[in-house]
């Protein structure tokens, strides 16, 4: 891997350091880059204790933009969980603010811890969120340990029994503020340098592209209809006015 990337580039150096930091699986999370692409990782997290997800083990992809860590990572869940749509890019933001509030001093670990913490929060109709019943989520959680990733294998075997380094107080207060939401595909096309693009686009890509075009189409349609309506009213008033005017002049 080291030969393929410019290790002088701070972003590459950073990802390699993160790969080393996260190399050892913990009982709560683990993550590692794909063998042929430092900018795509796979992760596994355990559902948070005391919630509908506590029996669940969830697997997914992390896509790093070429500007990482200046721009946030994107997360895609692959294991059905009843909280997030699968195969849909979600990104983290601070609740109530735009995702630009991502901070370069956060890391993939921050993103994973935040994801775990965010799972039990209400979906509230945000893009990419699902509002399944507790029973459905529990069923999915039980089923999840049998889930197999084509690249990583049986996900229940990926986590270890080692306790993760607990987040500091400071970190915890940040984690509690992070929210996740789905994003519009077309708005997030990566720019430039193809080297950072995933080389072998997996099966999930096609599903990703299809989301959310319908709503924006409906919005456009509504706008066109409103414009037509206003135009029609205008013509109607104009003609009435003319009719009145000519009636006046005839008198």
């Amino acid at each position: 891997m080291a030969e393929k990337y410019n290790t002088k580039c701070p972003g590459v150096k950073r990802l390699m350091r993160e790969a080393i930091e996260l190399a050892e699986a913990t009982e709560e999370y683990c993550a590692r880059p794909l063998e042929d692409n430092l900018f795509e990782w796979h992760f596994t997290v355990r559902g948070p204790r005391g919630t509908d997800f506590e029996d669940g083990i969830y697997h997914g992809r992390i896509l790093l933009p070429k500007e990482y860590p200046m721009h946030p990572p994107h997360i895609i869940l692959l294991t059905p969980n009843g909280r997030f749509e699968v195969n849909k890019k979600i990104c983290l933001s601070i609740s109530g603010h735009h995702p630009e509030t991502w901070q370069p001093s956060w890391s993939i670990r921050t993103a994973l811890l935040a994801l775990i913490a965010f799972m039990p929060t209400p979906a509230e109709g945000t893009i990419g969120s699902l509002d399944y019943s507790p029973a459905e989520r529990k069923t999915l959680a039980k089923r999840s340990s049998n889930w197999v990733c084509p690249q990583c294998g049986q996900i229940s075997e990926l986590l270890s029994s080692t306790a993760a380094k607990p987040p500091t107080e400071e970190e915890q207060s940040v984690l509690n503020q992070i929210a996740f939401k789905g994003e519009e595909e077309q708005a997030q096309k990566p720019l430039g340098e193809p080297i950072f693009e995933p080389q072998n686009i997996p099966f999930t890509q096609q599903v990703l592209e299809s989301s959310d075009t319908t709503t924006s189409f409906l919005d456009q349609l509504t706008e066109i209809l409103v414009a037509l309506l206003i135009g029609a009213i205008g013509i109607f008033i104009y003609r009435r006015w003319n009719a009145l005017a000519s009636a006046d002049s005839e008198l």
């Binding site: 950073r14 350091r17 370069p104 500091t168």
Partner: peptide, 14 residues
């Protein structure tokens, strides 16, 4: 001050 050591170090070194 509580900034994450791991990433602060990364920026500091560069």
């Amino acid at each position: 001050l509580g900034f994450p050591q791991f990433t602060v170090e990364d920026f500091y070194e560069t």
